[in-house]
């Protein structure tokens, strides 16, 4: 070896990637994929009703899972490579949140986990994701709407992250250690999602006639499902009362104020579109979903269901 070749030690300060493999502590939940809650105190604190905790974690987990899948459908379809990576990143953040939340639901009350065939290696969070029917999902209907164009993706990520960030900022104070830890991690992720979407929102609104009209159309399209995000389901009320969760109605004002800032910066008026009513008063949180979710799940779950004993 010629003596002018640098050793890796000498070169370390030239590489932005130096120390990459020795910084495992930076990963809040580790880098392996064994137990997503490893290292977190998963005992259920005194005074918390386990079934309520499980039902509440399921709602939050389903929101992220369904939203994640919709955004992941953009992979390889975004207008530019850089936005493709950005949207994939957002989808992966949400998937990570979902995994922790579904695992928490299963740990709190294993009766929510569907029974799998003998010998299936699927962990409980996978059983929840891949072996429930649409009516068993508790996500808000906003998350499941079929994708539109890039303006629609922008509005979708903006509204979703504005709402979710307002809820999760308070969820950090949850009396459940796991939900609190998930929220602390999630708030950083959601802040980025909101920033990314808000910037595109203003850019498209102030861009060309075409981009503005597409953005306004997307806003009108999604707006009817916005109020549902702030409805209080009995499970959320019970979770909030016991200190585990957050009543979304209490963050409406804060969320609307943030959204108004973005609308003002973009010079976009608040849409005047009526909210979409539930079916006999039931909405996403009650398991009442549109056909869109069934179709999405059919695709998302097909491989896992065809091979329930499959090892990945």
């Amino acid at each position: 070896m010629p003596d002018h070749v640098h050793t890796s030690a000498e070169d370390e300060h030239d590489s932005a990637y130096a120390g990459l493999l020795v910084n495992d502590a930076h990963w809040a939940f580790g880098t392996d994929f064994e137990d997503p809650l490893a290292g977190v105190d998963t005992t259920i604190p005194e005074g918390i009703d386990a079934p309520t905790l499980a039902a509440y974690a399921l709602m939050l987990g389903d929101d992220s899972l369904v939203m994640s899948h919709r955004i992941a459908e953009w992979t390889s379809n975004a207008p530019d490579l850089e936005d493709d990576i950005a949207l994939s990143n957002i989808a992966l953040d949400l998937l990570g949140q979902s995994r922790l939340l579904l695992a928490r639901a299963a740990k709190a009350d294993d009766s929510v986990v569907p029974a799998l065939p003998e010998g299936s290696p699927a962990p409980p969070e996978d059983a929840l994701a891949f072996f429930r029917e649409a009516h068993e999902f508790r996500n808000v209907r906003f998350a499941e709407v079929v994708n539109g164009d890039f303006a629609e993706a922008t509005v979708r990520v903006l509204l979703f992250s504005v709402w979710r960030l307002a809820v999760w900022e308070r969820l950090r104070a949850s009396t459940d250690h796991v939900l609190s830890a998930v929220a602390v991690k999630g708030v950083k992720e959601l802040t980025y999602h909101r920033d990314y979407a808000a910037r595109w929102f203003v850019t498209l609104a102030q861009g060309t006639e075409e981009s503005r009209s597409r953005l306004l159309a997307a806003l009108d399209e999604l707006w009817p499902l916005w109020p549902e995000l702030f409805d209080t389901h009995p499970v959320e009320a019970a979770a909030a009362a016991s200190g585990v969760g957050v009543d979304p109605a209490t963050v409406r004002e804060a969320a609307e104020a943030v959204l108004d800032q973005v609308l003002t910066a973009a010079d976009v008026p608040r849409p005047e579109v009526a909210r979409r009513s539930g079916v006999l008063g039931r909405t996403g949180r009650d398991g009442m979903h549109g056909e869109a979710l069934s179709r999405m799940l059919a695709e998302m779950q097909s491989v896992a269901r065809a091979h329930p004993r499959g090892q990945w």
Partner: peptide, 26 residues
């Protein structure tokens, strides 16, 4: 560390975060 395309300066920063610091590099 590399280059990328972006619509404006701020968006370039966000993209750089996604493309070049995915694994805690920076």
């Amino acid at each position: 560390v590399g280059s990328l395309h972006a619509a404006d300066d701020r968006m370039a920063l966000l993209h750089a975060r996604d493309v070049y610091t995915r694994r805690n590099e920076g």
